[in-house]
Design a protein around this nucleic acid. Structure first.
Lengths: 73, 73
DNA sequence: CGTGTAAGGAATTCTGACACG
DNA sequence: CGTGTAAGGAATTCTGACACG
């Protein structure tokens, strides 16, 4: 579950989101993928669930900075 | 564990084997990755363990057809 | 703010084949 | 038999930026 082995293409399939959205959540420091050989992002299945959750919260009207605060607690 | 979400590049990293070896084990019907959009192979963490096991058995002198029989039992 | 998109490059993955032994 | 390799193509992923609102 916490193994960071999934590429962004697979995350796209599993979440139904776009690369843009997935990368943006990283930019906003909500998800922290590893990097394989300094390039490709690697996510865990846990990250996939987290990304889905983030997207739902955003649809509910939350903003990324609010989610970041929520995650810290 | 049984989620087929890992690309061959990651399997390479996790097992230390070459693409050639990993693909050969598939050709010999010892591992069965999924395909994403008809191209890239997708493995599960379980497959990764299986591949490591296959490689050790081969180093021990077994042949792929023997391993296939062993797996069927 | 969160997401779309066109841009160009770099790295990945694929298949079929020849090679060795 | 199990693995290496060079070959060419196709699909993936990356970054930085402009756009909308």
């Amino acid at each position: 579950m916490t193994n960071k082995v999934i590429t962004i293409g697979t995350v796209k399939e599993l979440t139904g989101l776009t690369e843009r959205q997935i990368r943006y959540y990283e930019e906003r420091e909500l998800v922290f993928p590893h990097r394989s050989k300094g390039r490709a992002r690697k996510y865990s299945l846990e990250d996939v669930e987290l990304i889905k959750d983030i997207h739902m919260k955003l649809k509910d009207g939350y903003h990324t900075f609010e989610l970041r605060k929520m995650m810290q607690s």
